[in-house]
Design a protein around this nucleic acid. Structure first.
Lengths: 343, 343
DNA sequence: ATTTATAATGCAATCGATTGCATTATATTT
DNA sequence: AAATATAATGCAATCGATTGCATTATAAAT
């Protein structure tokens, strides 16, 4: 059986104290060069592996950042996680990752596990139905920073990172209008979540600005899955007169919808100009390719992780930083470009 | 400033020993019901949060499973992770997740971090160029189980979970041949990796069985990105005579390739019948929809996590389990279905 | 050679929960 | 009531690294 080597074993072997071994291994200036070299060599020979758990306990610091997202298997979240991991890893932080599966209850239990494991900070994109902050309170009380990204939660002591959903939705709706759409359907998600309500508001504002009356019968709220998109298409087909524009709050749902519309003989963009949101990989593959809002998940992850690490390194950093709004861009593709307006 | 409550604080308040508090909190049978209730209540009131770090140190067990994957932002891996997380979470295990970014060096440094943090087990899908086992040896020596999935590494003490890539590739190539293809190009990935070499071998075998001569000029090895697919398309277009079949080792690359072929006026499947691998979401969206191998990442994640947890709970479990081969299925779509063979 | 400054190392407590082995309190049996 | 069994609780060591505060060794200054 393998016996785990500790700094005491090294100390005993070299006839020095454990304190010196500890200091030597972390390159403390108060240990001589020669001793350091010797200790490093011996540690290596003996197969020593530092025990982070013991270190964490003593230092009351874990170098772990907790991450809670609605789901891991979403293209956007995977990008965000990749960005977070990249930054965390290169700053010697480890990642605890869990998913809430859109349930506040699970989000809370995950948060609890993170707290028990004494994560140094928490990055969260909240579940579909999270409306209270109770499960995050203990972090605030203990001064463990929480940063919300994308699906943010409004709280005075938590910075937020997101894109200007209102503006993006406004611009994309405006674009549809400029392309000649007058009756524009909007398919949106749970209005409790900032991302979806802001997209809806942006859509409304664009209509107003263009003197188009808002018709609530043209708004469909669902869970934005591909399947729901297909169902929404059936609803749209029953509308009379048929709408001539469609703005969906995410690409997956937009594409599910488009596929049905196409099958039913609707010509996109001639009959209905369509726009989505997220710039999912499928958006470039569908025909016609889908106009959408590009929205860099990877970058959002990087920014979130950087902000967190800055805060952890320099405790009184982000008192000022409250919101961080990232750039997003309109990507106009075939699904909304009408020939008659092409120049 | 917040003072962290420990079992000692609770013990002091109730005039019992810390041992009793510890036992009560974990529902040890040797503590009376009444005391348990009282302690639970007091702990709650005082805002006690158990410190997993201290517990881990003492128990020499972390309830953490480490996961190392090539990249987090891949559709397949995101599915796998979701499956792993689901199972781990419901069994009270936490997840340390990191990505190697296809670099052995980073894979090794991640492994080291995991070891230092004393993960109870390790789930790994190896980097593109990993050829040695050195960085995993310390785990074996310490009896920390490692399970490889998808991109597996051959090692006597590590179970592997994957699909029968050989058979799937064989079947899909055979299908292309049955559809009338005689000159079939194969685009594959790094042959060091089991997944890609087996797919290549399956392709070869299918050719042999159908008395088609293998032509190494029809094989293109690249990194299987969309961009590389587009470049491969250019190569294919230069071949003379033009091939009439194409089997690509993943969908992303297949689609990158198809898009160029289509643009250049090639008719799919009439001129070239195409098949991919993975059943990526884009495979259903591209036109014509892409024939592929379905390959449940989520399920693979679940299986890997379950096997790991069984092993962790019952130490002498998987001595027997070495390889676990999951089901995969051929999904035939328009990209390979030729009218002349339709019945 | 002595004092003073500086470098190198050691001591011992600490972080918070766990657990084998006592010990004390209560219940049961004779 | 005494003896025995059983339930409930406590003691104290342990897990391994860290660090403030000595202490000792070496170098520089007088």
């Amino acid at each position: 059986m393998h016996k785990e080597i500790t700094i005491y074993d090294i100390a005993a072997r070299l006839n020095v104290s454990a304190a010196t071994v500890s200091r030597a291994l972390k390159d403390h200036p108060r240990v001589s060069k020669a001793t350091k070299k010797l200790i490093a060599k011996t540690a290596d020979e003996m197969g020593y592996r530092s025990n982070s758990i013991a270190s964490n306990l003593r230092k009351k610091q874990s170098n772990i950042i907790g991450v809670i997202v609605p789901r891991l298997n979403s293209n956007f979240m995977a990008d965000v996680l990749a960005g977070i991991e990249k930054v965390a890893n290169s700053n010697n932080y480890n990642l605890f990752i869990s998913q809430s599966l859109e349930s506040t209850k699970k989000e809370a239990s995950n948060a609890k596990a993170m707290l028990n494991n004494r994560v140094d900070g928490l990055l969260v994109s909240v579940a579909y139905d999270t409306t209270d902050f109770d499960h995050f309170e203990p972090f605030i009380k203990r001064n463990v920073p929480i940063i919300f990204f994308d699906r943010v939660f409004e709280h005075e002591s938590c910075p937020q990172i997101y894109i200007d959903n209102f503006k993006a939705a406004h611009d994309i709706t405006d674009h549809l209008i400029k392309q000649g759409s007058k009756r524009i359907v909007h398919i949106g998600g749970n209005q409790l979540r900032n991302v979806y309500s802001e997209r809806f508001q942006g859509y409304k504002r664009a209509l107003e600005e263009n003197n188009l009356t808002f018709d609530k019968n043209l708004v469909i709220i669902n869970d934005l899955t591909s399947k729901s998109g297909a169902e929404a298409a059936q609803e749209i087909l029953k509308m009379s007169p048929l709408p001539d524009g469609l703005f969906v709050a995410n690409d997956i749902c937009a594409i599910g919808c488009m596929q049905v519309l196409k099958k039913e003989g609707i010509n996109i963009p001639a009959d209905i100009a369509v726009a989505g949101f997220n710039n999912d990989p499928t958006a470039t593959v569908i025909e016609p390719s889908l106009t959408t809002v590009n929205y860099k998940g990877y970058e959002m992850g990087e920014v979130a992780a950087k902000l967190m690490i800055n805060r952890l390194v320099d405790k009184n950093d982000f008192q000022e930083t409250h919101s961080l709004i990232l750039r997003s861009e309109l990507i106009i593709r075939e699904s909304s470009l009408r020939n008659n307006t092409k120049k």
